[in-house]
Amino acid sequence: MIERIIDKRKHDLGGGFEVGRVLPFHARRTVGPYIFFDHMGPVDLAPGIPRELDVRPHPHIGLSTVTYLYDGAMTHRDSLGFHQEIRPGEVNWMIAGKGITHSERFEYARTNGAHMHGIQAWVALPEAAEETDPAFFHHEGGDLPTWEENGIRGRLIAGATEGMKSGVKTHSPQFYMHLDMAPGSRRVLPAEYTERAVYVAIGSVEVGGQKLHAGQMAVLQPGGDVAIRAEEAATVMVLGGEPIGERFLFWNFVSSSRDRIEQAKEDWRQQRMKLPDGDNLEFTPLPEPKG
């Protein structure tokens, strides 16, 4: 039932703010179209935290980013002119397409302090949509189907599953779901998609008879329904979809073409990509090869 278990690894985003990186993993780079999965926190940020902790303006191509919080708040600004505060249970879905830049700031925490906890994922775009125009969407409330049953509160963040469909615009078959599970509660994950994974953000669960702790992702074998049972109060993310083919990844760039990655690197070096409105005084250098 379980093909592989992946443990999150510590990764510094560059200013001292650490996340737990799950995808990509050397032996498993994607799950469906999901090519990147970072667990932020949980961490308490005190009022007056330095701006160095913020995620400064940076570029993307060939993907959609999805930011989803359990606690805290983040401020998004992008080169299309959007300025959006994201709060728990809401979705920021940014389509990078042929190119976009954005920043993510801890402005609420800097003023008020905050318990920060959430997930940021990247969804690789299919080849036909890799060069689509960039776009930004904020979703909350009725756009995101929610339900409660048998000790479980659920929210469908993106895609379609079990007869439900999220209002988030996606470009390939997929699903992304948040489950809060009471101790002893149980949910069966159907075999609707070729690739599926279960990530434990809080607590512990049993998946297909195997125990998973917070910070672990179980990549499931294709085919067959799989049961998820909470051994204690747990927060679980379930995701997957149909594979989209080989993708190359460098820094914040994703593409089916190595040449396109090289073009994006040069565009950023030469500062040909517009920075976010009102947030254009900082520039994140392109990572250069070590040694």
Rank of each mutant, 00 (worst) to 15 (best):
Ile86Ser: 04
Asn92Met: 11
Glu85Gln: 11
Thr101Tyr: 00
Arg87Phe: 13
Gly118Glu: 08
Gly215Trp: 07
His178Leu: 12
Thr65Lys: 03
Met177Ala: 14
Gly16Trp: 09
Ser256Thr: 11
Trp122Lys: 03
Ala234Asn: 00
Phe175Met: 12
Asn252Ser: 11
Gly16Asp: 11
Tyr70Pro: 00
Glu282His: 11
Trp122Thr: 06
Pro57Gly: 02
Arg187Tyr: 06
Thr235Trp: 07
Gln271Cys: 02
Val19Gly: 06
Trp147Met: 13
Thr67His: 03
Val188Ser: 07
Gly154Asn: 05
Glu130Trp: 01
Val123Ile: 14
Gly209Val: 02
Thr67Cys: 13
Tyr193Val: 09
Ala191Tyr: 07
Arg56Ala: 15
Leu220Ala: 10
Glu131Gln: 11
Lys8Met: 14
Glu192Asn: 10
Arg186Asp: 11
Met177His: 02
Val226Met: 08
Ser103Asn: 05
Asp180Arg: 15
Pro24Trp: 00
Met177Phe: 02
Tyr193Ile: 10
Asp225Gln: 11
Gly167Met: 06
Gln84Leu: 13
Gly184Arg: 03
Leu275Glu: 07
Lys165Asp: 05
Gly163Val: 05
Gln120Asn: 07
Tyr70Glu: 07
Phe17Tyr: 14
Phe136Arg: 04
Gly142Gln: 15
His83Arg: 15
Ala114Val: 04
Phe248Ser: 03
Tyr34Phe: 15
Asp44Gly: 12
Arg269Pro: 08
Arg4Trp: 10
Ala230Pro: 10
Pro134Gln: 08
Ser64Gly: 06
Gln216Pro: 08
Ile35Phe: 05
Glu127Tyr: 03
Gly203Phe: 02
Asp7Gly: 12
Ser256His: 15
Ala129His: 07
Glu104His: 04
His60Asn: 10
Val91Trp: 02
Thr235Arg: 15
Gly142Val: 15
Leu179Tyr: 13
Leu179His: 08
Lys165Cys: 07
Gly224Asn: 12
Leu189Ser: 11
His39Tyr: 06
Pro134Gly: 10
Ala124Arg: 08
Gly62Val: 00
Met164Gly: 01
Asp143Ser: 13
Met273Arg: 06
Leu125Gln: 05
Arg229Asn: 08
Gln174Ser: 12
Gly81Asn: 06
Glu18Pro: 05
Gln120Val: 01
Val205Arg: 01
Trp122Val: 02
Asp38Gln: 04
Pro59Gly: 09
Ser166Asp: 03
Arg105Asn: 12
Phe283Thr: 07
Met217Glu: 08
Trp268Met: 13
Arg21Lys: 13
Val43Cys: 09
Gly209Glu: 04
Phe250Lys: 02
Arg153Asp: 13
Pro276Thr: 02
Trp268Val: 12
Ile152Tyr: 05
Leu189Ile: 15
Asp180Met: 14
His171Ala: 01
Lys8Leu: 14
Gly89Ile: 10
Met181Tyr: 01
Val22Arg: 02
Val43Asn: 08
Thr75Gln: 15
Arg269Asn: 11
Pro243Ala: 02
Leu63Ile: 13
Val66Arg: 04
Gly48Arg: 13
Pro190Lys: 07
Ser103Arg: 04
Met273Asp: 02
